[in-house]
Design a binder for these strands. Structure first.
Lengths: 263, 263
DNA sequence: ATGCCTTTGTGAACGCGTGCACAAAGATTG
DNA sequence: CAATCTTTGTGCACGCGTTCACAAAGGCAT
């Protein structure tokens, strides 16, 4: 989870659809779309749950927040459910989005097919590098940062994707917000601060790997030697005054992305 | 979150560090590294918490699971804490990783600087497209899928990144697991099924956007007209037998990634 | 050395999310 | 039309995660 600030009771109070449920709706939608393409008319909660990788009881409860769209003894009508979830997620309308920071990642996002097929339309690609301006990426010409405000207001964009290096992210964020953006998907490894009412979701590649490393280390140090608990308990030095095993600062400042766009 | 199967009590039972805490440790580590580079000797929980974008009470409780590394009245020793968290996350050792599927996204990942600076080393890039073989991406030559098993065992790789199209993901996953991989970071929009003992974390770009769209729609339909609740309650047709507003199947099969690698 | 001030570490309360288990609902069969 | 069988929808209980609030701990000034 990653909402902009830690405000809001985590539960979306409106119609009372729990945030956890909202996060799973796209999962169900994906599974349902696949079924729809195979012309499967109905699914049971059990089947759909396994296709989506969740518990069937959880799925039924999730759907119960949307209303009673199933038929007892039969299951759910696939087409109807696809529509209901799409509507609930706001996918029946087209959402223009802008991508800021057209480095490797930004380009990958621009080429990502999963956007267009879900009601999202890449309205513009924006980068601070003047030499990129005009060059097409994924068939869309990159525009310079100077145009940012104009692009957003002209196209009525309300969702922005930040794929810049960490150093530029907050500045870009501020400009996006000032220009009217109210939802941000942030790929830069920084904590963005935004005013109340703006949603931020964060995707951090390196964090995911670190979490995996934690579990991996756990697995490794489970049975082999008994030395695991030893190295665990013995700190290399007393709390204050240490300089242990500090990895050399590697390259420049910490947070880094492949992209261009200087700070 | 996204563990392979819905097994395991969500809490990592070992030394009893809650999963939610583990997920935040990389966040703290990032903030601490930045402080370390600025040669800041100590931080209070309040300062660090705000830098990491979390609540200070939460941060203190998180640290309490690791041990008592702070000094009352003063705060935490930055260097020491960096070391402790690094060790806890298993970042004091180098983790070789392989990236499978070198499309736009795979290339972006290969170029991502945040990996190397965190103890992760890209051991190999793998793709099924023979025409890519040998070509260097981010300075590393791409190798063909045939070599997958050999690469993994030769380098002792235990973490794999899947950046293939959805259609190929499960096959790749199976081969990775068979070859000895026990942690997988999955970028393909599919539910992977893996045997017990293998961890899977999922990053789905389109899902994040859909969640944003949900909240965005919410904001939009909050005050404008009173028509919101109307369209909300009236289904376009009765549950069975409908063909409402179904978006045309767009392009090919649903889950798609920019990458190459045919199924 | 003593008292004050800052900040940690944590006990306890609360709320969300998950999963169980079952009653109600509808379809289907004879 | 009645009985049976399947599958939904949900009441309930439990556990994890978050937050509050405060006592204990240590530094620092006098």
């Amino acid at each position: 989870m990653a909402t902009g600030r830690n405000h809001r009771p985590a539960t979306s109070r409106s119609r009372g659809i729990p945030e956890a449920t909202v996060a799973r709706l796209p999962l169900y939608l994906r599974a349902l779309t696949a079924l729809s393409e195979r012309s499967v008319p109905t699914v049971s909660s059990e089947e759909l749950a396994s296709a989506a990788g969740v518990n069937s009881a959880k799925l039924r409860k999730d759907f119960s927040y949307l209303g009673s769209y199933g038929t007892r003894g039969v299951g759910y009508d696939v087409e109807y459910l696809v529509y209901q979830i799409s509507r609930e997620l706001g996918l029946t309308q087209d959402w223009p989005v802008v991508i800021v920071g057209i480095g490797n990642l930004g380009a990958a996002l621009a080429n990502y097919g999963g956007f267009a097929s879900r009601g999202f339309r890449v309205a513009a690609l924006i980068d601070a590098d003047p030499s990129l301006a005009g060059k097409p990426v994924a068939g869309i010409p990159v525009q310079h940062t100077d145009e940012l405000e104009k692009i957003i207001s002209d196209n009525g964009v309300s969702i922005g994707v930040i794929a810049t290096p960490a150093g530029a992210a907050q500045q870009v964020c501020d400009r996006l917000v000032a220009a009217g953006i109210t939802s941000i998907l942030n790929f830069a490894p920084t904590v963005l601060s935004v005013p109340e009412g703006v949603d931020v979701r964060k995707v951090d590649l390196s964090i995911e790997l670190q979490i995996l490393a934690f579990h991996e280390q756990r697995k490794a140090g489970e049975e082999p030697t008994g030395a695991a608990s030893e190295a665990d308990t013995a700190p290399p030095a007393a709390p204050p005054a240490v300089a242990v095993a500090k990895r050399p600062p590697e390259s420049g400042s910490d947070g880094d992305l492949p992209a261009v766009m200087p700070a």
